[in-house]
Amino acid sequence: MGLEARLNGDSFFTTTVDALTEWARKNSVWPMPMGISCCAIEMMASGDPKYDIARFGSEVMRFTPRQCDLMIVAGTVTYKMSHVVRKIYDQMPDPKWVIAMGACTSSGGMYRSYPVVQGIDQFLPVDIYVAGCPPRPDNLLNALMQIQDKIGRTKARDFQDKPLPELTVIQNN
């Protein structure tokens, strides 16, 4: 937001703009479905008519990271995959949030084995951990509501000084 950067301090105008942007932001969280394994199916199920994630304004699953503000990492992250997850996270515009869905993403879960990263917080900042293997869709919806709470508590101005993420533009050769 450019407006609140010009008007410093807690004036009536800036706080009202803040309240408005918070409200808008939290009710239209666009998730980036980082579906990797089993949890991805339950994430899909949360979008189906029975659970209906659209009630929370998050039915717009964008498969390109540049249009998203919430990454749901659903499934076991292996070392080979971790580079991809991080790259996609880096491409998301600020402000952004991360849900670690399921035991595997949160802690490695039942896979105490050589290729699995024991918790994605080793390379990603995680906001909400969801328990379950895989979590039921209700659990994911609960996590989404908690993210909405968290967004509601975040001021738009908190992000104004943050530098833009460094996009990795690779030249040929």
Partner: peptide
């Protein structure tokens, strides 16, 4: 080869 792998053999971002 140990089940938990050899530390440092696979890289993280």
């Amino acid at each position: 080869f140990p089940l938990m792998g050899i530390p440092g053999s696979l890289s993280l971002p």
